[in-house]
Amino acid sequence: MSDAGIWLAAIGTLAIFSFLYRDNPAYRAAEQILVGLSVGYLVVITVRTTLVPKVALPILDGDPWGIVAAVWVLLMWTRVSTRAGWLSRLPLAVIVGAGAGLSIPAMLKARVLSQLGAVIRPEIDVNAVVGAIGVLATLSYFYFTRPPTGAFRVAARTGTWFLMVFFGATFGYTIMSRLSLLIGRTEFLLGDWLGLL
């Protein structure tokens, strides 16, 4: 980072942190600049790394598939028109339909069967038993088709405890993550900017 870059980043960082005291124009300005930059960045990266090599260059090379790709792009962009906007549903149908078709075997194999397979283990120990009970109990909790009564109620209740352990662990890790980000920014302010570290 150059000196100018460090100062720019430091001013921006302080402007965002000023929100901790209360909402103020410096924060709002930094926020809007951030969103503007992010959108610009996304558009540039998308155009340069995807639309140029996958649409523009094939057309220039005389590849007919490039024209087909361009048609999809134009159909998508009809969305801005009130009269021709319905045409944008065609490319959306490709994404939604193909996405659905591709997801079925992937979900069944990698999510359902593999995870079910991991429940049933060749070696049986305490952890394997706790794991199997936990999966069944959690599934019972999410089974809303029949009212929870009797043994089913006990299973669903046990499921909530397993879920609480999961959410508790996730919460602990979430705090860890957020603090790591703060550590990064504090290190920047104290070290790169102020030179205290």
């Binding site: 990698a110 593999s114 996730t170 993550s177 957020r178």
Partner: peptide, 26 residues
């Protein structure tokens, strides 16, 4: 991974679909 995603991916590590994972600053 970032630490917040560790609990999400541990089942995949356990099932062998993920070979290894490390999480967060730690």
């Amino acid at each position: 991974l970032s630490a917040v995603m560790v609990t999400t991916f541990t089942p995949y590590l356990d099932s062998g679909q993920l070979q290894a994972l490390i999480g967060g600053l730690k």
